[in-house]
Design a binder for these strands. Sequence first.
RNA 1: GGCCUGUUGGUGAAGUGGUUCAACACACCGCCCUCUCAAGGCGGCAUUCACGGGUUCAAAUCCCGUACAGGCUACCA
Length: 545
Amino acid sequence: MDRREYADFLIKTKHDYEYYLNKYPKRNLPEGAMVTRPAPSPTGMVHLGTLYVSFIDRIMASQSGGVCYLRIEDTDTKRTVDDGINMILNSLSKFDISFDEGRTKEGDNGIYGPYVQSERGDIYKAFAKKLIIEDKAYPCFCSKEEEDHIKEIQAKNKEQIGYYGRWAKCRKLTMEDVIEKVNNGEKYIIKLKSRGNPNHRIKFRDEVVGKMEIPENNLDIAIIKSDGLPTYHFAHAVDDHLMGTTHVIRGEEWLSSLDKHIDLFNNLGFELPKYAHISTLMVDDNGTRRKISKRKDPWADVNYFHKQGIPNEALVLYMATITNSNFEAWYNQNKDKSYKDFEFTFRKMPKGGTMYDYDKIINISKNFISTLKASEVYDRALEYAKEYDSELFDLLTKYKDYSTSIFNIEREQKKPRKDIATFGDVRGQVWYMFDELFTPSEYEWGKINDLDEIRKIVNAYLDKYDANDDKDTWFSKMKEVASSLGFASEMKEYRENPDNYKGSIADFSTVLRVTLTSKSMTPDLYEIMRLFGKERMIERLNVIK
RNA sequence: GGCCUGUUGGUGAAGUGGUUCAACACACCGCCCUCUCAAGGCGGCAUUCACGGGUUCAAAUCCCGUACAGGCUACCA
């Protein structure tokens, strides 16, 4: 039996590797065009980290005139969930991330497919077979228990841990030994026969991390698992070569597997792609930093932001902000431009852990919302309420124009109001404008808190109020009434002689404000009064007990 | 244990040998601004870049060591 027959005996494939090598042509792209790919696993909710990497993949490919495709890595059948692929597609599209190529809801788009690893079994096997023919891989019959035992001894002896060299007993098996074992029905997996020497160091340049040096891999890592599917490492080498990936952009946690990947690419005779290891999203957990965790951190799920009412655009802007440290400054100078107009570079990407910063997200969200027109705020608030606050939804629907006017207070102007940070905030900002929601738990009276005095002030003011007054007239009338009741109409005057007055125009307007809204902090009083109208203002006065 | 990466203010971070090297942003504090907030304006907030050595005329920036943090060390990605 020659090695080719031997490989056929161990691994049955429909085609051999030459077939696949010919099937997928080299990409014909201009110099410098990057081919990138997020490669998420369909394991359920979409992780913030997946969004982050996808964002970078997409932007780097677009900017360089390249291709960004979506590959699904579902070789871990235990963790794969049914609707996983759709969840990924849906979530990413919400954040303005689409693909030139890859798996879509309608199936594959592109000639390098299938783009789902579980459908590429024959391809991986064909290349594993190639390695066996060339004596660069071998079947391993060791059980999990045996391997654990080896590791224990190695740990005790303070030797390198793993399956390698003299510990790799299956690599010494002869063809005859193997054939006999297989014929006896023994199960096996395929492992790489590494020829690396850890005393040799590989000089390497990562696009983000820069120059680095790592020892050669000498571990005989698994490449085909007992279920016939490849391990991540092997699938990475085969897929990224066949699919023509030029830049592998992935989390920093992969940096320490790089030696294995280099070993694999070399053994397969593939040219190594460029790598960009971006920092992991970290969170501060009582003073220590750790990776964002699906279990502990609700925001690990990109849907979390939707539930908070943070606009998708704001999250994308946050992604851009953490992708390149100089993005934010540029954006502040170019607010009218899209983040896509900024030139992102690997060099400016963070290394060594990026802190997840919710305050920053809120700030970005607040600024983003402030740029929206009142009608847009209305539409989005309505959409949010539809899902999370049916009472508010009903009111917004019933009073569409009124609600839009509320959102328009101090909005469509050069320096718009920024009090809505998320659509989840809307109720807390507008509830007092709706009679249906106006059941104040307390009135935030200021200096003047005697109810008789308050009634006197409000009634005196209401006598003079005219909804048709413009703002200046409105304000001078207010001053007039305030003055007649013993309040200082000018703040400066009051500050200089506080003892001459009951209070200032500020105290006076606070009375009106709190009467109408129960709150001492609200947007522009003039606008609020116009929206209420005189009748409702009188009603609000009567609510006070 | 071994290997890899990182460590600049309350936070995220700019800056990779010297001419503003400690930017910018968030947070916080103070003042100002014809009604409160918000926003905006102005100002404050690291004599110092984890620590200890070394190289150099010159280091946050280069080298060595230490400490700390994170990651990997799976038939998981």
